[in-house]
């Protein structure tokens, strides 16, 4: 591939596609502040300023193949320092939206598909999820000071909805206990749900807005169907 011909051909810049984006890459002064402070700069060729230049030059085919695009955490430190206030995180996420879903590295797309289909990234049945939650609750109830502890599930009219982080369910179930115990000791009226219990949203990470909307909508449905008064922000 002749890369230099791509670079000098302004006709490749796809302005329509980026018209809806919050900032034009034209705004970039190429000062390099973003690249200087980004902890991911230089890893496998990642560099936030380079991303902006590639967008400006219309080199989208390369951006939707570049695995280093997934090294960015979208932490937005570069956005805070950018003298032109270009939202580089938004641009990275918008490029991720353009990726072929099947080519997304790791579990970010496949996990999202499982969450959409089964209600959770771990693809547990509602019954199995509930029995795992109850097993953790039983362990807490065996500790001094927590006698009679139970985990409220689908409790109508509860004061607080707690979403469950997928990572804790299978890999770190012991870490679920800390917050549950605090809620118990504070005499909180809380609940988790047996269906669609998660709060983390992988559609945010991989740029899939339609999926992200469905996941957020599930939380809205819980609040409405169970008449819960307050939502604890999941992340």
């Amino acid at each position: 591939m002749n890369k230099s011909s791509k670079i000098i051909d302004p006709g490749r810049s796809d302005r329509l596609r980026f018209a809806a984006w919050p900032h034009s890459p034209d705004d970039c002064l190429a000062c390099g502040l973003c690249s200087s402070l980004c902890p991911a700069s230089g890893i496998d060729g990642f560099d936030p300023r380079k991303v902006l230049r590639m967008v400006e030059l219309g080199r989208i085919e390369e951006l939707v193949e570049a695995r280093w695009l997934w090294l960015c955490t979208m932490c937005s430190k570069c956005v805070v320092y950018c003298p032109m206030q270009i939202n580089i995180s938004d641009i990275v996420r918008s490029i991720r939206t353009l990726w072929d879903r099947e080519k997304i590295p790791g579990d970010l797309h496949t996990g999202l598909v499982r969450a959409l289909k089964t209600g959770n990234v771990n693809a547990l049945s509602s019954q199995e999820f509930v029995s795992r939650m109850q097993a953790i609750a039983d362990e807490i109830a065996a500790e001094p000071g927590f006698e009679g502890f139970t985990v409220p599930i689908d409790k109508e009219g509860a004061n607080l909805l707690l979403t469950v982080h997928n990572k804790l369910v299978l890999r770190f179930p012991q870490d679920m206990k800390h917050l549950w115990k605090v809620l118990y000791l504070a005499n909180e009226d809380w609940t988790i749900t047996s269906e669609n219990p998660e709060g983390s949203n992988w559609g945010y990470f991989n740029g899939d807005d339609p999926a992200a909307k469905i996941l957020v909508g599930r939380i809205v449905d819980h609040m409405k169907n169970l008449k819960i008064k307050n939502l604890l922000w999941p992340e």
Binding site: P39, A40, R67, W70, L71, C72, T73, M74, C75, K77, P105, G106, D107, L108, G111, W202, F205, N206
Partner: peptide, 13 residues
Amino acid sequence: CCGGGGGTLTTPY
């Protein structure tokens, strides 16, 4: 940033 956000913990990298 610690490097664990934005989905990086789910990638193979």
